[in-house]
Design a protein around this nucleic acid. Structure first.
Lengths: 348, 348
DNA sequence: CTGAAAGCGCTTACAG
DNA sequence: CTGAAAGCGCTTACAG
């Protein structure tokens, strides 16, 4: 009998279930479950533990994620909601998250149109996967209002939204102020600002902190001097191209960009238009992407710690998912200005 | 009774099940399932259809992904296995995939250590989620050998591995040959190559195609002239710093890099070391990342269509998941050389 | 066209 | 320490 069965189709093609393991080990599926989940303490005999372990190894059994999730009421999936995955900054955040989450959890990426939060529909569909936890990057208040997740949530880069969930933030404001001081010291008085169109808080905060400090230091940023584009080199380049003639007439000597990506667009267009950087125009951004050290010239930028952001957020979420209480619900990581050639002091 | 119930906890906090919808609509859960899945044709009366639709809307019912997956034997998750998510190239691939997959499928990202395929363990855990399909970027043959996925698989950027699954590839070889021709025409005879350490086929192909065409055109790339680093600006910079003195002695006038990211490292180090680009050294890469237009100087690069790659792969996978047969199992997208300042002809 | 019932694979009280 | 049984939420033959 047994040998006849073994001669059939190689067993490998069939999904191995707990029942098969139980049969082989001569125990119940309950015991298999206990062993597979490491919940044997005081509940399974040494003898059965090794029997089951052996059967698991022999059959190559893996607990079925779907069945397990249904029984437990929660899956091992962690959903990462992010409005802008095309920003290279984000790849580092993901790497950090991945590392601190460990192999127990699977990272599910919810990608939406650049700069937009997922629609309520999408969120519902995602929640129907019963995620173990959620990581939400740069959310809007409205989105969090709708969310109402039954599983733990940690916010990334969500300044001012700490009331909704534990957050890991970047102290973009202090970097923004450093930048304003740096430009003021270099003698700039007429400055323009290229913002991101996405209505996420971090960009508003970067702009606000910069503008306040700039004003305090005698820098003027008139109304027509703030433009917004998507986070895209080409788009930023075109927008700058359109705005530059006017700015030039007004005596603008420096442009601050909401992200380095915007700044690359400005640098690119400046080269095309023959605007000398930094002699005619100083340029600076936020993020300090790896390319900022290599751009032409090197780009002055507010350094934001992307990997630590992901690491810390993953760590906090993991604690919550494991039922721990956070001793520190709000974490803020430092930012700092990195000065490079694009704002090298010119004589004025 | 009913009003008493309504006065209790707001219903919103409870998960809405098909049974609740069924009760409200006065039908069975079978009918609810049929309506929710759009399988009503000839099986549900118009009357019941609208009854159920109404109840679904009123209660805000969403089919539970876990329960549904268990019953169907497959989930709505598409797993994207990628060895290198820190490459900005990849963000565009993801955006393409996301777009062609549509909202029905959830993208689950399997991130591993830079450049490594996931271990067998990880794969098993992923497969236990019963994915609807798999997208595998730049895999090794060994990985595919182990995979044996019951769900459809589409390979991205996996030249030479078409036997394992339908593939969408990039014609990196023709771009590589164009690059060799370009350098030969500019008079370069002694060239070095900075490769990626990851053993993925695409890098081997880039190198091989370049070396063959280079040799055919009288370019020498000696044994000590090929070095490998991870895809990281800093690492590439250090490796180049170490190798450059020797190369310089041998009369090397051009360096080709397996990716633009490597090339950025070379550009960066060259600036530090005072090596003039392109006069003393020409530099070129592969990928044509957005930053290559802004680097110092602009980087000559083999343009690879990242978004179309993701789009096409998602499209093919979707067909397979919907039971269609692919009329074209192997797709190859064109590459082409973009010449910029980093290889501007110098007099030699 | 409709619903009762079985079944997907697992986990967890529960009774012993 | 152990196993039978209920249950997670859904889908799908099946019988009517």
């Amino acid at each position: 009998m047994e040998s006849a069965e073994q001669l059939q189709q190689p067993v490998r093609s069939r999904r191995i279930t707990a029942a098969m393991v139980a049969a082989r080990a001569g125990v119940s599926t309950a015991t298999v479950s206990l062993v597979a989940n490491g919940k044997t303490a005081g509940r399974v005999s040494e003898d059965n533990i090794s029997r089951v372990r052996e059967a698991i190894a022999e059959l190559g059994y893996v607990v079925d994620g779907i069945g397990s999730s249904l029984a437990k009421g929660v899956s091992s999936i962690v959903i990462l909601v992010a409005p802008d995955i095309s920003n290279p900054f984000f790849a580092k955040v993901i790497a950090g998250v991945r590392e601190s989450l460990g192999p127990q959890y699977q990272l599910l990426l919810s990608v939406t149109e650049a700069g937009e939060s997922p629609r309520a529909d999408d969120v519902r569909r995602l929640m129907s996967l019963r995620p173990a936890g959620l990581l939400v990057d740069a959310p809007s208040a409205g989105f969090l209002e709708d969310l109402a997740s039954p599983s733990p949530v940690v916010l990334l880069d969500a300044p001012g939204l700490e009331a909704y969930a534990p957050s890991v933030n970047l102290d973009v404001a202090s970097g923004a102020r450093e930048l304003a001081a740096h430009l003021a010291d270099a003698g700039h008085r007429e400055v323009a600002y290229v913002d991101s169109v996405t209505g996420t808080e971090t960009f508003a905060l970067r702009r606000k902190a910069f503008l306040e400090e700039a004003a305090a230091r005698g820098i003027t940023v008139g109304a027509g001097r703030i433009i917004s584009t998507t986070i895209d080199v080409g788009t930023a380049a075109s927008a700058f191209a359109a705005a530059w003639p006017g700015w030039q007439r007004e005596g603008v000597t420096a442009v601050v960009c909401g992200t380095d990506t915007h700044a690359y667009g400005v640098l690119q267009e400046a080269r095309v238009a023959g605007v000398r950087i930094p002699e005619e125009l100083a340029v600076a951004g936020f993020d300090d992407l790896p390319y900022s050290a290599t751009s032409n010239p090197g780009l002055t930028s507010v350094h934001l710690p992307a990997t630590p952001l992901g690491l810390k957020a993953g760590e906090q979420l993991r604690r919550l998912m494991e039922g721990e209480v956070l001793e520190q619900a709000g974490v803020t990581l430092e930012s700092s200005l990195v000065v490079r050639g694009s704002t090298a002091a010119a004589e004025r």
